[in-house]
Each structure stands twice: as C-alpha cells, then as structure tokens.
Design a protein around this nucleic acid. Structure first.
Length: 642
RNA sequence: GCCGGCUUAGCACAGUGGUAGUGCAACGGUUUUGUAAACCGUAGGUCGGGGGUUCGAAUCCCUCAGCCGGCACCA
C-alpha cells in the first residue's frame, strides 16, 4: 500500500502498487499528459515504472532539464527504428546523447546519402505521429545476447556480452522494434515533436581507426519547435563568426591549394599578428624571459636523440640535402632551446633560465585534420622553456600560471578552465620520474590556488601537463595554453648545470605556451569578437569620411595628425554618399568612424560614430585621440563610455 | 589517413547532355551627396587539374588535388 510523497510535501495513499503515470493522473489529466518520466526517490524512471513501496515521487515534465536528455535519447531510438524499417540489413550499435542532440551509429553495406537522410527523417516524423507506446522489458545478460544474435545484431550482442553476467538488461522498444537501453524513455513517440537530422559521417567502431567504419547520423532534438528554431539560429550565428569567412571579408589572410595548411598573411592580418607578438614580447620581457631564435632546420640525429623522430617521425618534414645529410624542419622548439642552454657551462645561480621564442614550426598534419587557421601545418608558437632546479618547479609554475591567467584577462577571457593531463601510455622515462613530475605539478597547482579536472593519459610523451581552456563569447571551449613539467628531455639531450657542490645536475625543463599556436589564437579571437576586434588590435582603428569633396583637404589633415600620433587611420574621400561609406567601414569593423562635413570643417571638429552605430557626438581630433588612448591603453577594458 | 559532400567571374550563387548566367564588387560616366547600399553603362570565365564516353560535356564515368562536415590523430 504505497504512500507517495510529492515535491510540495503532500502525500497520497494508494491501496495497490501504482505506476508513475497513474500518480500523475491522480493529480490531474493535464499533468498526466505532460509527463515525460518520473523521479522516484531521486532516481529517473519511466512513467510505466511501478511504485510498490512508499516513495518520494516527482513527475518530470518538459520544464524539467532532465526532459531534454530523455527526449534526445528517445529521438535517437526513433532514428534507429526508422533506419531499421527503411534499411532492414543495417545493424544498430550505439546512440548516445551529446551536446545539443544525439547520434546513432549503424553498420551498413554502403554509406547513407543525403537523400537517405531526408527519407529517414520523414519516416521518423510518421513514427512520431503514430504516437506508438514505448515498452520496456528486462532480460538476463545471456538471454539478451541470444536475443540480439538471433536478430542478426552482432554489434549489439558484442556490447551486451561485455556487461557483467549478473546484471539485468533492459530493452526498450516501440512497435516491433527493440533496442538495448538503460532508459528512461518518453512514454510514447508522440512526445517527440521538435527534431532534425543534421549530418551524416563516418565513424570508427569503438572509436578505433583499426576497426571498420560505421555510418553515423547526427541529429538534434528539443522540447518544442521554438527551442529547435533557436538552436538552428544559434548555428547560423556561429557560422557568421567563422574566422575563415571573416578573414576573407576583412582581407586578413588566405590559404591556397599549393600550400595546404600554410597561411598567406595579408597586410591587415599580419598587422594583427604582429600586434599579438609585440604584446607577448613585452609581457615576457617584464616576466624575466629572454627571447631567442633556434634554426628551422637541424640534423635528424638531434630529433632521434630527443625521441621526437621515433614518436612523430611520420608527421615531420624531412629533407635530404646534396651533402647527403638528413635534416628535419623543426616541429617543436624545445630541442633547439636545449642547445642554447647547453652552450657554455651553466651554474645553478643562473637558474631559472627562461628562453622564449616565437618559433615557426612545421608538422605534417593528417589531411583530414586541417581546418582554417585552427589546425595548420605551419604555425607559430609562443613557446618558452624554463630551465629550473627541482626545488624551483613550484615557484616557477606558480609564476607561469599567474602570467597566463593575467594575459587571458587582457583578451577578455575571464572564464578559464584547467585540466591536468597525466602520463600517457606511450612515453619516455622511468615511472618514478613520472611520479615526481606529476606530484610537482600537482603541488604547483595547489600553491597557485587553481582547481583542475583530470584528463587521464593525455600528457606529453616526456611529461605531465596543465592545459588551459578558454571559454569564448558564445560558450565554446578552446584549449590554448599549456604548462608541462619535463624531467626527461634535458637528460636525453645532455643538458646539465653545476650545483652548489660543484656536481653536474640535470635541470628540469618547464615547457609553456600561452597563445599556443598564434594562428589558432588569432582565429579564436576573430570568432570570439565576431571580427569586431578591440581597438588596440584592430588593423584600422579609425576612418575619416567626407561628405563632399569640399572636405578633402581637412580630412587629409586630420588623418595626418592622427597618424602622427600612432593611430591606424584611413581616409575615404570617394565620390559616394556618407551612408554608403559608413556601411562599408562598419562592415570592415573599423571601431571609429569620423565624419567631416562642412559644419565640422568650420568648427575644426569631427563627428564620431562607433561601428556599433552609436553616435558619440562632435569633438576635436585632440579630444578623440585622448579618449581613444584610454581605450587602447586599457586594451579595451575601459571603453568610451567609462 | 578513413567516410560522405563540394569545387562555375574577386565574393555569394543559378545553370543535369546542345551558344555559360544573376547579384554584389571592379572599371567608365552622371551625380556633390549628412550617419548601414544614388543612377546609367562597360569589361570580366580553359566551369579545380588530367583522362575517358559522346556528333556534342560545367552537366555522365575514371583519376588526382584542394576545401567543407564528421571519425581517427594532435609533441
């Protein structure tokens, strides 16, 4: 005789076991209709779940955040059902919920086509409209394996066979279609109203490139049409921020067939790039770094010694010269920096030695990995290697972490997450060395007062690392900075210093990058700001626009004044209406538009407008300069309005 | 690297076997203009490269490259 306690504290007694559905019905027919699932003593269950004993019960409706997950999961099932109906020979595998949607992987004799996708989606709509009841049953593990083997679902049988024998297996289905699933699911397919299949792609079985490739179908699903439309709108907005598109529109850079994965920087793009370097150069100088430059091309033996050739040889550019020597184009800066460290005898009194380089490296990335500026084959790292004693690891790591986070704030990235990546399966060095390195990095994190999440097995082959992940304006995460503790490489490359007892000691090397790849960071900035870079980074900071040719002389004079003060300014004297000029320079994301008409000329003023359309009124060139300077010097953290 | 899609003028795109098109940009002219697109005209293409089928290919087939979306990889 269960007594059910509802979230508001009220209780209802039933004289026999009841389902969640019946509990909902007892409260009201509207709630019953709205019920997606239930939460019984905190556990999510189907509406068909039978409550036999006293319990706390909640009815999950579309207002509940859990509902979305259930909808997506059930929509994945709907997808699998539709595929099995249209393509009976396809085998089902897995179909998890992911961010904003779900996917389902199928094994099928041929890839699905876009036409198949449309057909599958319309079948899904029919099945949803049929409002089929979702049923659940439970089998033993072995019976479930037998069941799916009989159906010819070998992948599914393999998945279930890996589950411990004692566990019960729940099967969900609708119509005569059935799948293994933990649940819970919506009570009937009619609850699935707002979904869309988005893309088809290949994906390896169990994520291993040695396995056969399956056909993956991606989809998105929401509580209602409005949310679905909002999501699709979000995708469109993200597309407008695409750095490849902005790069073309603003004439910043291009890529072309003859140099896959290598960037042709145009004047405006290169100006931004150099501004980033100048900024970092100054920050590093202030933090005690010394800038160096190591050769692009070094004998392959050096890379054999470092271990890079063995681990990454396939992705290194090698070149045989007429003297029969084999050279490698550097894919990393560390061996070069170690050579500089090694040149001459080093004393413990010199440590820490901080060597920084804006090093251009080349890596033969797999063709399928290339992606605009985000993943290229030739890129520039703001790479530094700090040589320290073991005792200095913590203090130096703390200093690096602080520098990193402070620099990110200058770019408007206040939301930074940190991951700790420990030893990978393939690595160099002894296990106790690794333990020391990992412990040191953990201690440093603690001392720096930062919190991290674990990223197991993802460390570099020579040491553990902290990974710094930035969240951009539309909520996407980008891993940029890294700090690695390396107790292996200096020894392999024969680096040592003389300690206070005149003994040779191997230094510890801290690898750190803040932007990571400058090309990639550039792309992230473009997308973060949607091309509207803060004035200190904008390639053109102001445009002087005339209304008629009567103002030409004045405009040129004003521009000259601003230019002499270091402002990146252009004039637009074209025979066009001012509205047209404003439109063009706004689309070019020029932060300030300075309009000069007869009135401004007469009063020796400028009418100032921002790219966001705000009218800042009229002022002299000197006043404009003064206020622009505040914005530039604060790197955009203090804007005009402050 | 693997699976799929795409590649037509500077850019965005139309053109499914029969004379390569539209808009924007460019160029020339008219217009002297007040805060997100004035008007008229002109020029611009080995339809990604190579090969094949066909009387005839942007269009069908093969192949290579690049790009796009995933997967795998990412020192």
């Amino acid at each position: 005789m269960p007594i059910v306690t509802l979230p508001d504290g009220s209780q209802r007694a039933f004289d026999q076991p009841v389902t969640v559905d019946e509990v909902a019905a007892s409260i009201g027919p509207g709630l019953r209709k709205a019920a997606f699932a239930g939460r019984v003593d905190g556990k999510l269950v189907d509406t068909s779940y039978v409550i036999a004993a006293d319990a706390k019960v909640e009815i999950v409706t579309d207002k509940d955040p859990e509902a979305l997950e259930i909808i997506r999961h059930s929509t994945a099932h709907l997808l699998a059902q539709a595929v099995k109906e249209l393509f009976p020979d396809a085998q089902v595998t897995i179909g998890p919920v992911i961010e904003d949607g779900f996917f389902y992987d199928f094994a099928y004799e041929r890839p699905f086509t876009p036409e198949d996708l449309a057909a599958i989606e319309s079948r899904m709509r029919e099945l949803a409209q049929a409002d089929q009841k979702v049923h659940r049953r439970v089998l033993s593990r072995d019976d479930a394996v037998k069941f799916f083997t009989q159906l010819g679902e070998h992948y599914k049988a393999e998945i279930i066979a890996a589950i411990p024998a004692r566990e019960e297996i729940s099967l969900y289905g609708q119509g005569d279609w059935v799948d293994l699933c933990r649940g819970p699911h919506v009570p009937s397919t009619g609850k699935l109203k707002a979904f869309k299949l988005t893309k088809i792609a290949g994906a390896y079985w169990r994520g291993d490139s040695r396995n056969p490739m399956l056909q993956r179908i991606y989809g998105t699903a929401w509580v209602d049409k409005k949310q679905l439309d909002e999501y699709l709108h979000r995708l469109e907005e993200a597309e407008k921020r695409d750095h490849r598109r902005i790069g073309r529109e603003l004439d910043l850079f291009h890529l072309q067939e003859e140099a896959p994965g290598a960037v042709f920087w145009h004047p405006k793009g290169w100006l931004i790039f150099q501004t980033l370097i100048a900024y970092m150069r100054e920050r590093q100088r202030a933090a005690g770094y010394e800038e160096v430059s190591a050769p692009e091309l070094m004998d392959a033996s050096l890379w054999r010694q470092s271990g890079h050739l063995e681990k990454f040889g396939d992705s290194m550019y090698l070149t045989q010269t007429p003297d029969e020597r084999l050279y490698a184009i550097k894919p990393m800066n560390c061996p070069g920096h170690v050579q500089i460290f090694k040149h001459g005898l080093r004393s413990y009194r010199e440590l820490p030695i901080r060597l920084a380089e804006f090093g251009k490296v080349h890596r033969y990335e797999p063709s399928g990995a290339l992606h605009g500026l985000m993943r290229v084959r030739a890129f520039t790292q703001d790479d530094a290697h700090v040589f320290v004693t073991e005792e200095q690891i913590i203090s130096e790591s703390v200093a690096i972490t602080r520098l990193l986070l402070d620099i990110y704030r200058d770019f408007g990235f206040d939301d930074v997450k940190i991951k700790f990546a420990d030893r990978p399966p393939q690595r160099v060095g002894a296990d106790d060395t690794w333990t020391r390195a990992e412990e040191a990095l953990k201690a440093a994190s603690l001392a720096a007062g930062i919190e991290y999440s674990l990223n197991p097995g993802e460390g570099a082959f020579y040491g553990p690392k902290l990974e710094f992940v930035l969240r951009d304006a539309i909520g996407r995460d980008w891993q940029c900075g890294t700090l690695q503790v390396d107790l292996n490489m200096p020894g392999r490359l024969g680096a040592y210093y003389i300690d206070e007892h005149s003994h040779k000691r191997t230094p510890v090397m801290l690898h750190r990058a803040i932007f990571g790849s400058l090309e990639r960071f550039f792309a992230i900035l473009l997308e973060h700001h949607a091309g509207r870079l803060p004035a200190w980074l904008a390639p053109v900071q102001a445009a002087v626009l005339t209304i008629t040719d009567r103002q030409d002389e004045y405009a040129l004079k004003v521009a000259e004044t601003l230019k002499n003060q270091g402002v990146r300014v252009v004039t637009d004297l074209r025979n066009e209406k001012v509205g047209f000029k404003i439109r063009e320079h706004t689309l070019q994301r020029v932060p300030f538009l300075l309009v000069a008409g007869d009135k401004e000329v007469a009063a020796n003023l400028l009418s100032v407008r921002t790219r966001s359309g705000k009218d800042l009124g009229t002022m002299s060139a000197e006043t404009f300069l003064e206020r622009l300077r505040v914005e530039l010097e604060s790197r955009g953290r203090r804007t005009w309005e402050d």
